[in-house]
Design a protein around this nucleic acid. Sequence first.
RNA 1: GGCGCCUUGGUCUAGCUGGUUAGGACGCCGCCCUCUCAAGGCGGAGAUCACGGGUUCGAGCCCCGUAGGCGCUACCA
Length: 607
Amino acid sequence: MARPRVDQQRVRQTGRSGQRAQGLPHRRGHRQRHGHAGALHRRRQGRLRRLGRRLREAGDRGPRQRFFHLLRAPQPDPGRPRGAGAQGGPGRADGRHRQHDRPPRPLRDSPLWSAGEPHQVHADPQVTAPVRTRFAPSPTGTLHIGGARTALFNWLFARRHGGTFILRMEDTDQVRSTRESVEQVLRDLRWLGLTWDEGPAGDDQGSVGPYGPYFQSQRREIYVRYLDKLQTAGLAYPTFESKAEVEAEREAAIAEGRAPSGAFEEATADQVQAMREKGLEPAWRFRMPESGVTEFEDLVHGSMRFENRLMADFVIVRSDGMPTYNFAAVVDDALMRITHVLRGDDHLSNTPRQVCLYRALGFEPPAFAHIPMILGADKQRLSKRHGATAVGEYRAQGFLPETLLNYLALLGWSLDDKTTLIETEQLVAEFSIERVTKHAAVFDPVKLAWMNGHYVRKADPARLAPLIREQFLKAGLERPEGPWWTRLASALKEKVRALSELPAENAFLFRREAPEPEARAKFLACGGPGMLAGLLELLRGAEFEPGPLEAALRGHCEAQGIKFKDAVAALRCGVSGRLVTPGLFETLTLLGREECLARLGEAGGWS
RNA sequence: GGCGCCUUGGUCUAGCUGGUUAGGACGCCGCCCUCUCAAGGCGGAGAUCACGGGUUCGAGCCCCGUAGGCGCUACCA
């Protein structure tokens, strides 16, 4: 390939002892520096907050976005150490927000780096053009709670603004990505109702949408094309340094108290050729600006600022030809016209690198919103040892999708000071990035279970019936489909949390079991044997529906001078062999007259 | 090591321009309701707002500093 404009590419000298190390200031006590930076940050935050309030009060539509540019003092022109800078930084002197209605610039306009020039992007939560968000999981396992929450926020934001929600599979890690995992993720998202407008279609490797394919593994040529552009512009270079070598160098640098070099040994064309003849391909690194700062506005964290010289050249294409996350995500987000990137804040530190890539490629960066992570009870990243963390597990345990949506929405977001139960529809209507929290949240399965109880109670028994049947089937308790299941559902839904708890407590409805000793004792204690004849008589004659049955029993007790409670206890224990059951009259009708009579007869033999 | 982010009861959170008995929810305890258990209703315990200074008549909110947790610094994403 042609390699024009070589002169412009000499943004930085190559070689591992490149200039940048020399340019480093003398190390100061890190503690002192750290504290200072923190203070600066806090001060800035304080100013932001005050400005934000002022603006909000003034009736400004978008509290957060406006004050950012007010805050930003006119950027002093650093003197443009290198000529290319003239067309650089996006600036936003006019204070308008136009990135959304402008497609990414064609690459040939790509400005080269100009060292020392701040690279700024602006974020604008005030939506002026169609919103496009995406969820981009790597299919290396099932959909987890954290991923589901990220997907939810992206989905909510898109739906809230009438935008487009895109699903993209980041399957560049060929060894860990599996077809099975893709299917599971699709299935779980569908179950949650987080439907996507563009992305994988069906369960195969197909895609729908104008910017596909939506599997990164199918987009290799695209990444190669953009790598070529970067290389041509002198912003990417090949290296053969192994991972071990890189690590050794870094550790040595730290041990010696010097900053690790940000540059790596660039292989010459001859070297690349020679290695290729030996069957080795280089990895490609992106050339970071060696000075200046990269700034961007984060919709939840505010103004972010990173020094370029502290970020090393990073690999964008591996020696196996696959792009790395930071590269593929940027190329795809740009090409797919993503306007708002909502993702876990573990990506916050990667963002300046990505912003540099956007710039290098001539793309306008999207708005970023880094949402807090979800942790386990021990405040560590959520993982298997925290119990069920996969969406699929919750589905299998009989959780309702609206439960997950409601609960997950409240992890890092709130509507107001007292709303806990929020229907999905309301979520869509009310979601706002401005109310997203900054700190990590601990996932609490107990609260989730409570919430599921609420939604199960709210649900239509006819909807619950097949779900409940599935749970019993799993426990080996069968019964043909039919209205009986709907009646069971309405009897059971009042006292449940996870539907999976049901079979253990209610197996007696399906088969006779040895009575619990406590139930047997209670049957005797409440005078069961003495009432038996009367109760059998009553059951034989009564209309077998909950209402009439209750009326009949109350009448019977009245006439016989029996305590209603005792009669209930006798029937419950006698018929179920248990202390706790669904409502007695529902239980009786579920069992049916004949079965009740038979079981009561057996109970007559207890002693 | 460097850089970055975060910090209100056990947990999720509210707290908008400084003045609230720091509000709500889960969980916990008690009472009521009640055919058991739940659900529901009512009430209670539980927060020196990470810590230390400062400004102020007054600070969870502002300023300075410290600590802790987490993330990035990978040819993981």
